[in-house]
Structure formats: structure tokens, C-alpha cells
């Protein structure tokens, strides 16, 4: 019964998404598909971090009418992983945009998105 808690299910889902994303990166030939797989891995890592910071039967780290200000440490979840994930999501969109721009630049050079067509690094 312990393993039916929300955090255990989310950790399993995060690990499975991580494996699916890795499989996408190493098996797909299209550059856009690789970038999509990278964004799947990004989401899975965020899920894992938030799930590890979660504590059962506690509320969000916001001091309002439902949380006693003096006993806040016994009533809220961990605010630190949430702050880190907040930062990581915004950096993730920057990295995705940068990778898409490089893909566009490569397409303008070689007129193809398939990774098999790029022979200049083979030797």
C-alpha cells in the first residue's frame, strides 16, 4: 500500500519517460525528432525532482489561511526543488530554441534533416 503513494508513481513515470526519451535520441534519424526526445527527457527530470521533494499529506509552500505561520515547517512541502525546477524549465526552453536554430542552420547548408546525410564528420 505504501508504494501506491503519489510520489512513488511519479518517480516510476519519470524513470520510464527518461528511458523512452533516451531511446528516441539514440534510435531516431530525424534531427527534429531528436530535439523532441530531448524535451521529453527534460520533462521527465523535472517530474523526478518535484516528486523527490514531495512529502505526503502536506500542502504547498505558501503561507496563507490554511497554514499556521509558526508551525509551517510541519505543514508544507520542500520549497527548494520547486525553485530549482522553476529555473530549469525556463532554461529548457532556451536550450530547445538554440538547438532548433542550429537544426535550421544545418538544414540551410545541406537541405536535409536526416542525420544520415551529414557525412562531413565521418572519417
Amino acid at each position: 500500500m505504501k508504494y501506491l503513494g503519489l510520489e512513488y508513481i511519479t518517480v516510476i513515470a519519470g524513470f520510464l519517460l527518461l528511458i523512452v526519451g533516451l531511446w528516441g535520441i539514440i534510435s531516431q534519424k530525424n534531427i527534429i525528432k531528436m530535439i523532441i526526445s530531448f524535451s521529453i527527457i527534460d520533462t521527465s527530470i523535472h517530474l523526478l525532482l518535484v516528486a523527490i521533494g514531495f512529502i505526503r499529506n502536506r500542502t504547498a509552500p505558501i503561507i496563507d489561511s490554511s497554514v499556521d505561520k509558526l508551525k509551517a515547517a510541519d505543514q508544507i512541502t520542500d520549497p527548494l526543488p520547486q525553485a530549482l525546477v522553476l529555473t530549469a524549465i525556463v532554461i529548457g526552453i532556451g536550450i530547445t530554441g538554440l538547438m532548433l536554430t542550429y537544426a535550421l542552420k544545418l538544414y540551410r547548408q545541406n537541405k536535409s534533416l536526416e542525420i544520415n546525410q551529414y557525412k562531413s564528420l565521418k572519417w
Partner: peptide, 22 residues
């Protein structure tokens, strides 16, 4: 990853840093 999951255990208290913030 399965080994990582096997060692994972959910928390029931905040650690020291989070307790300081709270």
C-alpha cells in the same frame, strides 16, 4: 535506474535547509 528506484524512500520530514526556509 531500477537500482536508483530500489533505494528511493519517500520523506516525512523536511531537511535542515528547507526547515530554515520554512
Amino acid at each position: 535506474l531500477f537500482n536508483l528506484y530500489k533505494d528511493y524512500d519517500s520523506r516525512d520530514t523536511l531537511n535542515d535547509t528547507a526547515r530554515y526556509y520554512a
